[in-house]
C-alpha cells in the first residue's frame, strides 16, 4: 500500500479543491466557475424539488419532495452510511 488513509467521518477526498478549472488561466473565471457549481439556497424561499430512489419500509421506491406537500419536512443530508457520527 503506497499510502495509508486515515479513517475519518467521511470518505477520503477524490478531488483536490485547489484544482484548476480546465481551459482558462483567468483567476476570476476560475473563482466564478467554482462558485456556480454550488450556490446556497435561501430561507423564506421554496425548497428545490427533487425525486430520488429510496429505501423505505423494506422496499426500494422513489420519493419526491412534493409527495410531502402540506406537511413539515426535516431534510437531513449526511456524509455517508457507516460513518461514525
Amino acid at each position: 500500500m503506497a499510502e495509508e488513509i486515515q479513517v475519518g467521518c467521511q470518505r477520503p477526498a477524490v478531488h483536490d479543491s485547489q484544482a484548476e478549472v480546465p481551459g482558462t488561466d483567468d483567476a476570476g473565471i476560475q473563482e466564478a466557475v467554482k462558485e456556480s457549481r454550488s450556490s446556497m439556497i435561501k430561507v423564506g424561499k421554496p425548497a428545490p424539488e427533487f425525486s430520488l430512489p429510496a429505501y423505505v419500509d423494506g422496499k426500494f421506491g422513489k420519493v419526491s419532495l412534493s409527495d410531502y406537500k402540506g406537511q413539515w419536512v426535516s431534510l437531513c443530508f449526511y456524509p455517508g452510511d457507516f460513518t461514525f457520527v
Binding site: R11, V14, L75
Partner: peptide
C-alpha cells in the same frame, strides 16, 4: 465536490 459526499445539511 472534493470529497464526493454531502455535508451535514439539515433543512
Amino acid at each position: 465536490e472534493d470529497a464526493g459526499v454531502e455535508t451535514r445539511g439539515r433543512f
